[in-house]
């Protein structure tokens, strides 16, 4: 049994095989594998008796359901207006310089991916970024670099 099937079995035991269980299934796979591969989506489509295009459509609708390989740590900098006004561009620049990648890219060692995301609801404490599920509010370029360095040592 491949790992994706093990994940799917867990999800379907809990939520069933109706279409409504599609989201938890996709989320569970992304949590384990960081992204949805071609084969993962085929496995999901088979499990829920959906077309692969439909599952792909659902997956691509959500920013947090990646369909391309990502690094171990996915950094998402909020790009919405409040964070923009409080300096998200400087944060992104600092991260790009530290990681030597551009937004949308992954480091060669597959450790970090740098992405932007829409509003995370932290407008009062912007600029803000996520590293996987952890939130880092009130960033400065220096703080952002230090946070990334702590992950580099992990």
């Amino acid at each position: 049994m491949t790992d994706v099937q093990a994940i799917l079995e867990k999800v379907t035991t809990k939520y069933g095989k109706q279409r409504s269980a599609l989201m938890p299934a996709l989320q569970a796979i992304v949590k384990e594998k960081n992204y949805l591969s071609d084969e993962d989506i085929v496995a999901v489509a088979k499990t829920f008796d959906l077309s692969t295009a439909e599952v792909y459509g659902t997956a691509t609708f959500y920013t947090f359901l990646d369909t391309v390989p990502r690094g171990k740590y996915v950094i998402r900098v909020c790009k919405t207006i409040s964070c923009h006004m409080s300096g998200k561009d400087e944060i992104i620049e600092a991260l790009q310089n530290t990681l030597k990648i551009k937004v949308g890219e992954t480091t060669v060692d597959k450790k970090f991916s740098l992405l932007t995301a829409n509003c995370m609801g932290w407008c009062h404490k912007g600029p803000v970024m996520l590293v996987n599920d952890d939130v880092y509010p009130e960033l400065t370029p220096q703080k952002a670099i230090e946070i990334i360095q702590s992950y580099q040592q992990k």
Partner: peptide, 28 residues
């Protein structure tokens, strides 16, 4: 009942797409 085409992405990126944007010739 085929769903070879579906809506992918959202907002200004929204597009009508096959599975992983594969060529029409290669999908269902």
């Amino acid at each position: 009942g085929v769903s070879a085409l579906a809506v992918a992405y959202k907002g200004d990126h929204q597009k009508i797409s096959t599975f992983f944007e594969h060529p029409m010739f290669e999908v269902v």
